[in-house]
Amino acid sequence: MLPIEPPAARAFDFPRGVSSTVLLVAHAADRGVPPERVLAGSGLSVADLADSQHQVTAGQELRVVRNLLRGVDPAGYGAEGRAVGMRYHVSTFGIFGFALLSSVTMLDAVNVALRFWDLSFALALPVVVAEEGRVRISLSTDGVPSDVAAFVHGRDTAAVETVLGELLPGRPPPRFVDGVLEVGLDYLSSPLPQGDARTRAMYEGMCEELVASRRARSGVAQQVRVLITQRLGEGAPMEVVAADLGMTGRTLRRRLASEGASYRTLLEEVRESLATEMLATGRLAVEDVALRLGYAEASSFIAAFRRWTGRTPTAWQRDRG
Rank of each mutant, 00 (worst) to 15 (best):
L245C: 12
S140K: 07
V104K: 00
G154W: 09
M238L: 08
V144M: 05
S102E: 11
G205H: 12
V224L: 06
E182N: 02
N111R: 11
L210F: 11
E209C: 09
A243Q: 13
V183C: 06
A122P: 02
T141E: 14
A216L: 13
S102F: 12
A242T: 08
P172A: 12
T199C: 11
V241P: 01
W117C: 01
A113L: 02
L181S: 03
E131A: 15
L139R: 01
D186H: 11
L123A: 13
V240P: 03
V177W: 02
E132N: 11
S146N: 00
P172D: 12
H153G: 14
L139H: 04
R231E: 08
G219E: 12
M202N: 15
Q223H: 13
G154T: 12
D142N: 10
L123Y: 08
P174V: 05
G235M: 01
A197K: 03
A197S: 09
S190Q: 14
G195Y: 01
E131C: 04
A242I: 11
G219W: 12
V129F: 07
M106D: 02
L227V: 08
S213A: 14
R225W: 03
V144R: 00
E182Q: 11
G170C: 13
E182W: 04
A158F: 10
R225F: 02
L245Y: 10
E182I: 00
L227D: 02
D156F: 13
G219H: 12
Q223A: 15
A122Q: 04
E234D: 08
A197Y: 02
G235A: 04
D108C: 04
E204D: 09
A201E: 11
V163E: 06
S189G: 11
P172N: 12
W117R: 05
P193D: 03
A242P: 07
V183A: 10
L123P: 01
Y187F: 15
S102C: 13
T157Q: 07
E204Q: 15
M206N: 09
S189F: 10
Q194N: 04
I137G: 07
P191I: 04
L210P: 05
L139C: 00
Q194I: 07
E132A: 14
L188G: 11
G233R: 05
A201L: 10
G233Q: 03
L227H: 09
A197G: 00
G233I: 06
L232E: 05
P169F: 01
L114E: 05
P237L: 08
V127P: 10
P172G: 02
S138A: 13
V112K: 02
H153T: 15
A109N: 07
E234M: 07
L167H: 03
L185S: 14
A159Y: 06
R136K: 03
V127M: 05
A99G: 01
A109E: 07
Y203L: 13
A122T: 05
F98Q: 08
D118S: 04
Q194F: 10
R200D: 01
D196M: 05
G235W: 05
C207R: 06
G195C: 06
G154D: 10
S138N: 08
V177N: 06
A236R: 07
R175H: 14
V152Y: 00
Q222C: 01
L123C: 10
